[in-house]
Amino acid sequence: METTKKSEKELLLEFEEKINGEQKIEPLDWMPEEYRQHLIRQISQHAHSEVIGMQPEGNWITRAPSLKSKKVLLAKIQDEGGHGLYLYSAAETLGVTRDQFIQWLHEGKSKYASVFNYAALTWADMGAIGWLVDGAAITNQVSLQRTSYGPYSRAMVRICKEESFHQRQGYKIMQNMMEGTKDQQEMAQDALNRWWWPALMMFGPHDGDSPRTNLAMKWKIKRETNDQLREKFINKTIPQAELIGLKVPDSNLELLTDGTYKHSDINWDEFWQVVNGNGPCNQQRLAHHIKVHNDGAWVRESAMLTSLIEE
């Protein structure tokens, strides 16, 4: 049997044919190095975001207002940890270990979603985070279910099934507060005021300022651009706010005849400040992750030894 070695050019052609034919790329398939690097960056950043995202909500477990809300919050946060694990396992199929991903996070070489660098100040923030932050994440993740990389796509399908509970539990918290006392209503409105813009920032820079978008779209890693996804989120979320009597903090909102909204632009200075490490909680979030990781080192080391003995 004769095996002929294919040239790089032929391999790229086959790869792009597969992508154009909506076939998934699997871990052992040939892929361009740029495709692999883009996925490594995007999936690990996504995984880190799930795990760091447990911190602002973890802050409220012991202060949840009822046993029921505590149980719901715990289940939600456990899901986020699980999502991080699905994503690390998808990212590891690209030939990088989880240990390495965590090291890159600790060294600041790998980022996570900036939105988690804002503080969760009140119980209403648990509502706003579930409704808006998870809501924005779902908008992105529903689109990513069709990403061209098989393991990433399958992780997204699994995550999307679980995320709608997250968004609903958040919206329910907001609804309950809006049906409560005047203080509770004000607290809910205050949470929306603080989380609205950070949620919109989650979609990233404008398409024109996002240099990697073209390649990511061409190779179908991303299926919709940052701006397309952001508009989708805005258009479906504003009516949800109005339904329970909340006011979106944007004085330029205008409902257009096609059912979409005209709105103000994001404060991009703030966006870049937070991305570049100067948000309210950047240092705290990372320091906490490093501390817990280091505190647990002896557990991992002794478990490693035990597993060697078992073999």
Binding site: R98, D99, Q100, Q103, H106, R300, A303, S307
Partner: peptide, 9 residues
């Protein structure tokens, strides 16, 4: 930071 991977198999 330790350079040995202790994340388990």
């Amino acid at each position: 930071m330790s350079t040995t991977d202790t994340q388990g198999e």
